[in-house]
Amino acid sequence: MKLHDLQPSDGSRPSRKRVGRGIGSGFGKTAGRGHKGQKSRAGGYHKVGFEGGQMPLYRRLPKRGFRSSLLATNAEVTIGMIDSLSYTEIDVATLQREGLVRRNAKVVKVIMSGTTTKRLHFRGIAASAAVRILVESFGGTFQ
Rank of each mutant, 00 (worst) to 15 (best):
T73A: 07
V19Y: 03
L85A: 02
P56L: 13
R21H: 09
Q7F: 03
K63N: 11
T115E: 11
I23P: 07
F50R: 08
S12C: 11
A75L: 04
D83K: 06
G53Y: 06
G140M: 06
R59Y: 08
S137G: 12
M55N: 06
P14F: 01
K2D: 03
A127P: 12
S128H: 13
G43Q: 12
A105R: 06
V131P: 01
D10N: 09
K2S: 07
I82Q: 02
Q38M: 07
G65V: 10
Y58D: 13
M112P: 04
S128T: 15
G26M: 10
G22N: 06
E76I: 03
G99Y: 04
P14H: 02
Y87M: 03
G24W: 01
Q143A: 15
S128N: 12
H46E: 14
V19T: 10
G20R: 06
R33M: 10
E89Q: 13
R41H: 10
G124A: 15
V19D: 03
R132V: 00
S12V: 13
T78P: 08
L70V: 07
K118N: 05
T30I: 10
I23T: 06
S128E: 15
K2C: 02
Q54F: 13
G43H: 11
F66H: 11
S12T: 10
Q143W: 05
V101N: 03
R123T: 14
M81L: 09
L61I: 13
G24E: 05
R97H: 11
S86Y: 02
L134G: 07
S68C: 10
E136L: 01
S84L: 08
Q7V: 00
G37A: 09
I82A: 04
K63G: 12
S84R: 09
S128C: 13
E136M: 02
L57H: 08
A129R: 14
L100G: 00
K17V: 15
T94M: 09
Q143R: 06
T116E: 12
R119M: 15
R60S: 08
G65K: 08
V92R: 06
F138H: 13
R18K: 10
S68I: 06
T115M: 12
I23Q: 07
I125C: 00
G80Y: 07
S128P: 14
G99K: 03
F66Y: 11
V48Y: 09
V131Y: 00
G28E: 00
S137V: 05
G24T: 10
Y45N: 11
F50T: 13
G53P: 11
V107N: 04
G43A: 09
G44T: 00
P8W: 05
R59K: 15
G114Q: 07
R67T: 13
Q96A: 00
G139H: 04
K109M: 15
R16Y: 06
G80Q: 02
A129C: 08
R102I: 01
L95T: 04
A105S: 15
Y87C: 01
P62V: 02
K36V: 01
F27V: 14
L61H: 00
Q7G: 02
D83H: 11
I79P: 07
Q143P: 06
T30A: 14
Y58T: 10
Y45V: 03
Y45I: 09
M55R: 12
P56I: 12
